[in-house]
């Protein structure tokens, strides 16, 4: 096993372990971590198995196999980013609804208090 493979295994391993640790400490929800787990496992697989990397690279006509890893990492980043922005959009929508409801409730509450006095 050459130096490059060991480095690749080390990097994917640490990302995988950090993700698992974040889930364990409740700092990352499972449903948001699935993409991370999936992508790091794929990276880990290719770091271990040089042969499969070469086979897949050949399939896509890629002359320099490590560049397939870059491509994969890049695609994972795009997918994870789209996922994150969609989560943020959903959250900001809910946040808006909450703020509106609070404002409406505050008004109803003030009216109730006025009536009682």
């Amino acid at each position: 096993m050459d130096m490059m493979s060991i480095l690749a295994i080390f990097v994917s391993m640490s990302i995988l372990l950090s993700v698992i640790e974040l889930i364990r400490r409740n700092r990352l929800k499972e449903k948001y971590s699935l993409l991370w787990l999936f992508s790091t496992l794929v990276m880990l697989w290719f770091s271990f198995s040089r042969e499969s990397l070469h086979v897949v690279s050949k399939m896509f006509g890629i002359k320099y196999p490590p560049s397939f890893i870059f491509l994969l990492g890049f695609l994972f980043m795009i997918v994870i980013n789209i996922h994150i922005t969609s989560v943020i959009s959903e959250l900001s929508d809910k946040n808006k609804t909450l703020a509106q409801e609070i404002a409406l409730l505050k008004k109803a509450l003030a009216e109730m208090k006025d009536k009682r006095e």
């Binding site: 808006k96 703020a99 509106q100 609070i102 404002a103 409406l104 505050k106 008004k107």
Partner: peptide, 14 residues
């Protein structure tokens, strides 16, 4: 006047 106060600035649409 009746007033509804949003807890923070949400923008004209909201």
């Amino acid at each position: 006047v009746d007033v509804i106060s949003l807890p923070f600035n949400l923008g004209i649409g909201a």
